[in-house]
Design a protein around this nucleic acid. Structure first.
Lengths: 341, 341
DNA sequence: CTGTTAGCGCGTTCAC
DNA sequence: GTGAACGCGCTAACAG
């Protein structure tokens, strides 16, 4: 593998001259430059980006760190990030935090392989993030908030979104409600539960609300937890799922048991992933602005890299998207006026 | 930012000792090691991965290069790659080739930032790939074949898949057929067209087949091209789209014009992306084994990195997935026996 | 004005 | 347990 040395030798000049020539530092005469370029071409020379990053101590690269590259709903997020990064001439890498402390994500977070990171990976411990963030290495968090001077959180108003969704169910006449989520320790899950609970409290339904929180936040677990819920009997008439993926898994479980959605059970998701509008019934869900979130994240990251001071926390609004997975329960046709207590 | 030097100073040992200690090269006494670890912790030392990669001249990282990180149907592919990479202790990065020669993808391909790459990015010129691939830098191609000793292609049998799909339409009684694809110069597009044409030829329908090839391979373009097709009049009764995304765009266009699918026009896609089963009508399509393809790609990449000789080309079969977007055209109810000529 | 020398960035590893 | 060379490219300072 040819190095800059080989090019220098072949062109009959010093290494530095080659470097200058290749980087257009008009210090080199045109004829020499031509000779050097020709030598580089002949040797199929490619610079070692690692060496040059090391010297420059900057990579002009940012990382998007997600739990699972194969996950859903990153698509739109990525789009926003990608566009901003591209316009700034930065490179964007995506990597996954599967594999825990040995994961690519942690390696990239801690080993200065990139200039900054955008993180949406609930399985990375806060301690790791706190250790990683520093002056010249800002981190934008999309899934939690941690106190650290070099960290910015962009949150979606999960609490309000779930509150709104729950009120929607109540408004339709639902009284026996459930929330189905994953690991209750995840901050996002907590926020969503809390919106659910607040709506219940406000409408005097506290006692009728079931909470099911366990495991992962994916379709399979939505399916599994819904099956458990069915097996338990005493099915609620309205269910708020942690996210669309879990809701879609849940709908699948209901279908297998011949339980109709929304005829027998109403279902609401969260996120508004692309699939939500395509599944049958089309999923009523809480939309979060994904593209905007990505774009904002990238924007803030560059602000931080430019040394500009930032708010530690941004919050984006959600919106209820009404589709076909919610209907008034039997005996409750027509809207029921909300009564707060 | 603390470097290994600072740790050495604080611990009162030499740099090399710190390195050995941190890498568990049991050359260091336990007490020294403990002192070093303590010093590192106090300084919040994080090694510079770039420096270490430079020295080791290996990154234990492979890249997945795709046209657009936000694209569809990579999800399953990624899953296969990710699992194999993880099991080998390698890191996986995803990056996009948006941005042409300046893109992250090209940078990663040419600058030795990773040990090997899996490429599914039709917009990277073959010359770039040929220049990048070398002994110690194998490249697995998922979207084309190029002659180069350090390159392996894993292709899907596009020709046979499209042939099968076209025969399916013919078998249902369709006679006026069209193929809707993107840029005709893309090798994948060529292969797919060729399967379409062969089926037409075999059944004496050559003259009735329309070819529409232009632009990108995405949903928007499927939508746009279908609108053009509608505007032209003389609508065929059966359409084979380059891929599911384009087909979904096409169905959308038909819906807007009140043209029923499959009542008035039958539609077949290619890929079997997740959405295909959720859109209405559920999309009949040609399935390619995505997970297997990803896993095979990663597997072969590691074989190459281990210096094992490889076939230059692998080919995976496709399968027709019959859903609801194809029906016999008016006046042709019931299966029509195929007659080859 | 052209081109060279020399040292740097930071961690790894061989020889002692 | 240490010293020093090394990986490779960048660039300030200097010489021709």
């Amino acid at each position: 593998m040819a190095t800059i040395k080989d090019v220098a030798k072949l062109a009959g000049v010093s290494i530095s001259t080659v470097s200058y020539a290749l980087n257009n530092h008009d210090k080199v005469s045109l004829s020499t430059k031509k000779r050097i370029l020709e030598a580089a071409r002949r040797l199929n020379y490619q610079k070692n980006g690692i060496a040059s990053d090391l010297k420059r101590s900057s990579t002009r690269t940012i990382a998007l760190i997600v739990t699972d590259l194969a996950g859903p709903h990153y698509a739109e997020l990525v789009k926003g990030i990608q566009e901003v990064a591209l316009s700034r001439g930065y490179d964007l890498l995506a990597c996954s935090s599967l594999g825990g402390e040995q994961s690519t994500a942690v390696k990239f977070l801690t080993e200065k392989r990139v200039d900054g990171a955008i993180v949406l990976a609930y399985n990375i411990p806060a301690a790791t993030l706190r250790r990683a963030a520093r002056e010249a290495y800002p981190i934008i968090l999309l899934d939690r908030e941690i106190e650290s001077p070099h960290t910015v959180s962009i949150e979606v108003d999960n609490e309000a979104g779930c509150h709104m969704a729950t009120e929607h169910l109540i408004e339709q006449g639902h009284r026996r409600l459930a929330y189905v989520g994953g690991n209750p320790m995840e901050p996002l899950n907590e926020q969503r539960v809390s919106g659910f609970k607040r709506a219940l409290r406000q409408h005097g339904l506290e006692r009728e609300g079931q909470l099911h929180q366990f495991g992962m936040f994916n379709r399979d677990n939505g399916y599994a937890m819904t099956k458990m819920l069915i097996a338990e009997g005493n099915l609620p008439t309205g269910i708020l799922y942690y996210n669309d993926e879990m809701a879609i898994g849940g709908i699948q479980a209901f279908r297998e048991y011949g339980i109709r959605v929304p005829g027998d059970v109403s279902v609401i998701g969260f996120d508004d992933i692309e699939l939500a509008q395509y599944v049958r019934p089309a999923l009523t869900t809480v939309m979060q602005p994904k593209y905007e979130r990505g774009a904002l994240a990238a924007h803030l990251l560059f602000q931080a890299l430019d040394g500009k001071p930032l708010e530690p926390r941004y919050r984006l609004p959600t919106r209820l998207i009404v589709r076909d997975s919610v209907r008034a329960p039997a005996g409750h046709e027509g809207k029921v006026p909300l009564r707060s207590e």
